[in-house]
Amino acid sequence: MSEPALLVEGLAKTFTLHLQGGVRLPVLRDVSLAVFPGECVALVGPSGAGKSTLLRALYGTYVPQAGRIRVRHHGSMVDLASADPRQILAIRRDTIGHVSQFLRVIPRVSARAIVAEPLIHRGESHQAALRAADAMLARLNLPQRLWHLPPATFSGGEQQRVNLARGFIVRYPIVLIDEPTASLDPVNADIALSLIEDARKTNAAIVGIFHDPAVRSRVATREFALAPIAEAA
């Protein structure tokens, strides 16, 4: 088997709520996980087990207290947990894609511009990026009349398809996905899942949260179980 694309070692994350008198909420403790290219790992566990927290830590949004998140970036392993902000931005630009559960809409920016942005960010020409965005939106069945509109007024399903298009427009070696099909009808959910399958078949390492067991069994190659941590002292 090849080298892992993502190697998590001894990860711990505790939230300290200073506004609630410094209450400490331990969410992850000693989490270790290796994800290889061509794998799709489904995070499983009850609500509050830390699935979303782990996913956000893997993207560098949540800063862990302990452990390492080593990512294969341009051929070498970089620890996301101790990387400086510019390194993290470079990793996000080229190596890790993230499809969040909800689209963050930007006032006045059209759907196709939102989708094209990651490509432009990587130096693609505006024209080529917009062409690729149109192709993605077409594949995801978003009605063409919506492409030029800002998604603020879109339905949940439409927004989620814009989000998926943006997340998959770049072929990232590592993809993090949070509930990709939650607000989609069966036809569009099927398209979304085919995107994930295509990415995996082209050797992406995928970590995702899929609540629907049918979805999970279709796209995941294995499961990684998380359990809630007992109350801390």
């Binding site: 939230f15 709520l17 200073h18 506004l19 956000r56 560098g60 949004t61 949540y62 800063v63």
Partner: peptide
């Protein structure tokens, strides 16, 4: 820190106050 780090996982009491 990165914008999403500071806004989604603020560490300092004052940052938490601002975000909340």
């Amino acid at each position: 820190g990165l914008t999403d780090q500071v806004l989604d996982d603020p560490q300092h009491p004052y940052s938490q106050l601002l975000v909340s």
